[in-house]
Nucleic acid binder design. Structure first.
Lengths: 351, 351
DNA sequence: TTGAAAGCGCTAACAG
DNA sequence: CTGTTAGCGCTTTCAA
């Protein structure tokens, strides 16, 4: 196979007695050509085992048919990031459907890189930033304002003028949790938020803000609506925080556990203290797939974030931008509140 | 920015009064050029904001500096796949170090695709298949036998003649678990294996074989060393299987729980039946990050598969193959057995 | 409906 | 150490 001459568009032209221009038109289904010619060409291509060279096509057409994906990979091992893998899953499927390739392009966005160079390199036709944190905001701003096709997930950023944002209900579910608790009459709640060393603290601050805003809005004290931060990599940190909440004078009635993986720990701590879910304490967590929570006993109520759909939609939107089709897509993928045994809806009363 | 002329290697040549050949040499740090020329060129490139076009470079050099990654994405939502995300994490970091890009290339390997076409498309310089199951074996065989740089994870395949395999101790840890149980004197053990509809059953069969082989080797009966299959998406399936094991006449002494996410379910089932870990029953599971298991109470013993390192190593090996550097790398990334409270080592006795 | 020809931006002999 | 030049394989006017 090393010795075989690489077969090109010229070989097809020769074999069919046509010019390369016609072959090109047929490859791209562009311009005019007769049906007879088309079938002849296709036959020749199959017989010779021809496939167009991706880089030659890119060079000539100035399009790569590739999407650059920027994901939050850190340089250390991290626990399973459900959001990322589900997002990736959805993005992969969508890219398949739309005939685009996905390039993991963290490499382009080193601190020393300049946005214009990234664009000029023409490695991709557009970018998707998924939950990458604020160190990328500078890049995203330049990309978006310069008109380069770009999509990102998370809350909408100030410089976003033409719908580059795929929103999955982030933050809202935390607010909603607090609101539902309030409706159920709970006046002692806590919202847990994990942090990891390698991660930016941006997200933690957003959660803290939500809790503070809610307290202000309802006139609650810090004890009635608590914001609890813990070190994800240190199970003890979580354990102490939870134990303290359960042993204080006004025991907590409902907790938002944030990270799904810590829930099993929470269940065992709660039960080891002789308490029951949801009689003594109600719990909720975030999950990225709909069945998540069913394996707990009692079953865990979750805010199900549709990260798979977000990935799918992000790719759809980006391709739409790239190809300027102007189709309208929904940018908002609302989360779902899945009530299970650990936290029942207000209608059924609890208190 | 739309109107700006695209600046190319010719512009740099003009600005520096050199030929494009010299500029090219400097870009690629290849051939000879004076230090003075180099700094002049670099200065000009910075001033003009020049970046070489990736596709032009690929076309001319017949190299893409890109690695095709084939991961097990299915068309439906799946629970968090720890292995894949950790593998991807490691691969991303390695690719960054080695200045390669990662292309998610599931798209190339549709059933109708031919391997030679994939190669001719020259989209990537090599492929990495990670835990993709046997529907890709055909592609892998053709790729490897035709000499195209290819790396895969999992057990070594018959057509692999020159070390294309990155092995992470897969299977071995299950055998080792059974062996350790035997040494500890356990004569009632069970090995759980999950299956998912969209997944190929290959892996399940491998596990079943391990159990059968072990029984034969030690002369154990089916009751003494059980193989238990359950539906990952159906928590009830897992629950019934586990309950049955715990209530039979000869209760199980140790269980390999396989999937990490089901452990919390197992813990709650076991405790709800009034049993204790590890006094009444010892448990072990697989995890892809070293801290995994610490959040359980009692802490979970795990077989820690170094999937991050596997991803890193896979990229290193592939780049080595692509660039024919002939460096020697270790292909074997042994798993670690992390003893925690749920299953103590034989030395400390138990029975 | 098809063909001729001029690029796309860069690499790599080869010559100097 | 540097320049000339012939490609790499395809797209895209513009003519025919």
């Amino acid at each position: 196979m090393e010795s075989e001459k690489n077969i090109t568009i010229y070989d097809i032209a020769q074999a069919t007695n046509l010019s390369i221009a016609t072959i090109s038109r047929i490859i791209n289904k562009k311009g005019r050509y007769s049906a007879e010619t088309e079938s002849r060409v296709i036959k020749a291509m199959e017989e010779l085992g021809y496939t167009p060279s991706a880089s030659a096509q890119s060079l000539a057409s100035n399009q790569t048919h590739t999407i650059g994906l920027v994901l939050p990979f850190w340089s250390i091992q991290q626990p399973n990031d459900e959001f990322t893998i589900q997002f990736l899953s959805g993005a992969t499927i969508a890219a398949n459907h739309l005939k685009y390739d996905l390039l993991l392009d963290n490499r382009s966005f080193v601190p020393s890189a300049s946005t214009s160079q990234i664009i000029k390199r023409r490695r991709v036709d557009g970018f998707i930033f998924s939950a990458v944190g604020n160190s990328y905001q500078h890049f995203m701003e330049e990309l978006i304002t310069s008109g380069f096709p770009t999509i990102y997930t998370g809350v909408q950023l100030p410089f976003d003028k033409d719908g580059c944002n795929v929103y999955g209900g982030h933050e809202i579910y935390k607010q909603d949790f607090l609101e539902i608790c309030y409706q159920k009459g709970y006046r002692n709640t806590a919202l847990f938020t994990s942090y990891m060393q390698a991660q930016e603290l941006q997200m933690v601050e957003i959660s803290r803000q939500i809790v503070e805003d809610f307290r202000l809005k309802k006139g609650l004290s810090q004890d009635q609506c608590r914001f609890v931060m813990y070190d994800y990599y240190n199970p003890k940190s979580f354990q102490y925080a939870l134990e303290e909440l359960l042993t204080q004078k006004n025991p907590v009635e409902a907790i938002y556990l944030d990270q799904f993986p810590t829930c099993s720990h929470a269940y065992s701590i709660i039960s080891s203290m002789g308490l029951r879910i949801p009689e003594d304490i109600a719990v909720v967590a975030t999950s990225q797939y709909s069945r998540g929570g069913e394996e707990f006993s009692p079953k865990l109520t979750t805010t199900y974030v549709h990260s798979y759909e977000m990935g799918y939609r992000a790719v759809e939107l980006l391709v739409n931008k790239i190809e300027k089709k102007g189709l309208e897509f929904e940018h908002d993928i609302p989360y779902s509140f899945l009530y299970r045994e650990s936290f029942l809806p207000p209608e059924q009363g609890q208190e």
